[in-house]
């Protein structure tokens, strides 16, 4: 056990220094929902063109941290963020930063497939139209659907409603919609939890393809999924010692190291299925 775990001091994970370039340097000091301290002391660097997986038990704050990376949490009135999220040298929580613009660079795929109630084509073209894209729309839509491994299944029914697709297809449509605008970073909040194993497999393969062009951050409940797709893994846990339920980063490192030779006993217990 390398970290300081004396009773008087709160545990803080050893900082992870990635070898490759980072796109986002997230340093959470504290995240509050009203008076409730949801997450504390978590430094999470997101490496360029890699998949960073966030794992941990329910309520450990992994989704909260992920949603802080593109200011989605701002939609919750009582949310308060202390710390910094450096993106290309700018803190996205700086006063002058417009969260709406941040979200155009840092896209998001949600837990539940959430296509708009419009045609498949319009779903994918949505972000392009939003950004007043002037080029060849058909081409971009096709490319995005191909990137999302959905083109073959929908190319003859682009006019059909996005809601007419199956759950797995809807989620791939949402990924196509997110990548159509070619965002810098794609945040995925448990994208496979509502999907069956076959659809999950397809989305996982898709993530591995997408990392050639995009930086991905992935929250998952499924540890096997993290080992299958994530290059780097961040393990979060819940601290119930001080009466609250505060999440914090326990350990972060290359996925193989985290799973095969975890530094912290908490990590070891969690990945071996021994919950305290």
């Amino acid at each position: 056990m390398s970290a300081l775990q004396e009773k008087s001091q709160v545990f803080v994970a050893e900082p992870f220094q990635p070898e490759s370039d980072t796109v986002i340097d997230c340093a959470v000091n504290k995240i509050y929902y009203g008076d409730f301290l949801a997450v504390r002391d978590s430094v999470v660097p997101i490496e360029k063109k890699k998949i960073t997986g966030f794992i941990g038990p329910s309520g450990c704050g992994k989704s909260t941290v992920l949603r802080s990376l593109n200011r989605m949490n701002d939609l919750i009135d009582i949310f308060r963020f202390e710390g910094s999220v450096m993106y290309h040298g700018q803190d996205i929580y700086a006063k002058k930063v417009d969260p709406v613009v941040v979200r155009r660079y840092i896209g998001m795929v949600f837990q539940q497939p959430n296509p708009f109630s419009m045609s498949i084509y319009d779903n994918v073209a949505f972000g392009l139209r939003l950004n007043k894209y002037k080029g060849n729309m058909d081409e971009r839509v096709e490319t995005a659907l191909k990137h999302a491994a959905l083109w073959k299944e929908v190319k003859d029914k682009l006019k059909n409603s996005g809601l007419s697709l199956s759950g797995g297809q809807q989620q791939r449509l949402c990924i196509a919609r997110a990548v159509a605008t070619e965002p810098d970073v794609l945040l995925m909040d448990e994208p496979c939890s509502a999907l069956d194993p076959i659809a999950t497999r397809m989305v996982e393969e898709l993530m591995l393809q997408l990392k050639e062009n995009y930086t991905l951050a992935l929250v998952t409940h499924n540890m096997q999924q993290a080992t299958r797709v994530a290059d780097t893994t961040a393990f979060f846990s819940v601290d119930i010692s001080q009466g609250g339920r505060t999440g914090y980063l326990v350990e972060m490192g290359p996925t193989q190291q985290v799973f095969e030779a975890p530094r912290e006993s908490l990590t070891k217990d969690y990945i071996s299925g021994q919950f305290s």
Binding site: N70, M72, L75, V100, V101, V102, R103, R104, G107, M108, F110, Q112, N114, P115, F116, S117, M118, F126, G127, L130, N131, C174, R177, A178, T181
Partner: peptide
């Protein structure tokens, strides 16, 4: 109109006005 659809629109970088005009009203 489901909240998840509005979330998707915000996630794409819509302003609140755009969420209303492009997603909530048409849906």
């Amino acid at each position: 109109v489901p909240q998840k659809m509005k979330d998707a629109a915000y996630g794409m970088g819509c302003t609140r006005t755009q969420v209303v005009t492009k997603v909530v009203l048409p849906t």
